[in-house]
Design a protein around this nucleic acid. Sequence first.
DNA 1: CACCAGGCAAGTA
DNA 2: TACTTGCATGGT
Length: 210
Amino acid sequence: MRAQLKTIYEKLYSHFGPQHWWPASTAFEVMLGAILTQNTNWSNVEKAIDNLKKHKLLKPHKLKNLSAKKLAALIRPAGYYNIKAKRLKNFLDFLFGNFKGSLKAMTLKNTPALRQELLSVNGVGPETADSILLYALKKPIFVIDAYTKRILLRHNLIEEDTGYTEIQDLFMQNLKRSVRLFNEYHALLVKLGKDYCLKNKPKCEICPLK
DNA sequence: CACCAGGCAAGTA
DNA sequence: TACTTGCATGGT
């Protein structure tokens, strides 16, 4: 498994090249994007973030002072806008409640404990928490998403009932614990998924891993 | 028209 | 515990 995971990464990197994730200019923007992109196309998330940017709301204190109602209207293009407005507010409550709104304070906390705290926020599940840890806070945590599972499934590397943590352990226990590697590997898996491993339109016969 | 996207929580039995 | 459903816009 260790050798296979390394080989897959090398094939993906040489085929697609660097993906330059996460597409955001600040850590806070990454965190918002992590919630907004839940089951949602990234292009829609960009529209929502652009709206926030236009209104100069991409700062913890600014967003904190915005009603969920107004926030929902601004993030409308991202879909699920009512529930995502609440989830963003829940996250902001957590950020201010535990870290006084300081991302620096947040990153000083030890990673396992912080991950548990993130998971306790309503609206933050394992993928969102891990995206925040890896892409916003630069912690060596591997992010698992639907594409990752589907790709491993189609290559017979896991079973259908394999859970999030189990898949995550596969990567984390068989790869060098590197933020750079985890960042690029996950991004490359998403790229492969979008191009060749869609739900009902798999292009397995021409997948670059073959 | 149908299908899907870088999930998660709540409801049901 | 194990399934199912709701959330919603925008691109293909």
